[in-house]
Amino acid sequence: MKNSPASEVTSKDAATNHAEARLPAAAGRAGTDLARSEAAVYRLRNVERKRSDDFRLDVDDLTIDRGEVLCLVGPTGAGKTTLLSVLSGLVPIDGGRLWIAGHASHEGPLPLAKQRTIAAVTQRPLPLLGTVRRNVECGLRWRGDGERDGECDERNGARIEELVDDVLARFRLRDIAKRSAKRLSGGQLQLVALARALVLRPDVLLLDEPTAALDPARVALVESLLADERSRRPMTVVWATHHLFQARRVADRVMLLLDGRNVETQATESFFETPSEARTAAFVRGEMIY
């Protein structure tokens, strides 16, 4: 891999990088090319979101296409989480214009039906009371996939069970399906959080450092599962990560955020090989630019 940011390399990164050959990233990219269409899922124009007295997210211009993977990189506190929360449609913006799946922010809150096409995995996922299985199936139940008028329809109930079984198997969580989610390790919880988002088959998946607590093998598993999912259907992924190697493996485009501002958004190869901004080049080299 060219332009390796040596100072960013952790043992986890290195191990995952070695595993890159086994990752279906190329398959994922091919799937992405098939899945990408011209329609934009997100359009942001001068979007502002005040997080605190001394921090404001300020994205001048950003369009995210259907089916693409956009990785957000930047130092801690750069605004990645704030941008993801804005993209979730659940957090109001303080200025500018935001279109989510054609819905403009100034027209009011995002309708629930559109809201339900988006799923998010937060940086510190919280377990719900109950088993791992219950955690994974909760979103399906809230969305009504399996329940009518509060009563679980037998056929849809069986469908939920089938979907949950499938995702538990894919995330290798079947052995702990009956365990209380409150007793999981950080890594297990992160896998459960990903499973409960992916089981919803969302059109848009927002990921906030979803592999930060995972070992290299699990990182590879998650990347592979997401690539597999995207090869089957167009799913837009916005993925905040501190791991530049990971961004390079999974992204179609990479965006560098600094102090809440979009420094540069480029196709992955250009971002790493020929960045147009000096700060991007420094960041990619692993130099402190903040």
Partner: peptide
């Protein structure tokens, strides 16, 4: 209950 929980369940499709 952690403040973030409401956001997380809304982000999974809860009304």
């Amino acid at each position: 209950v952690p403040e973030d929980l409401q956001f997380q369940v809304r982000a999974l499709g809860a009304s």
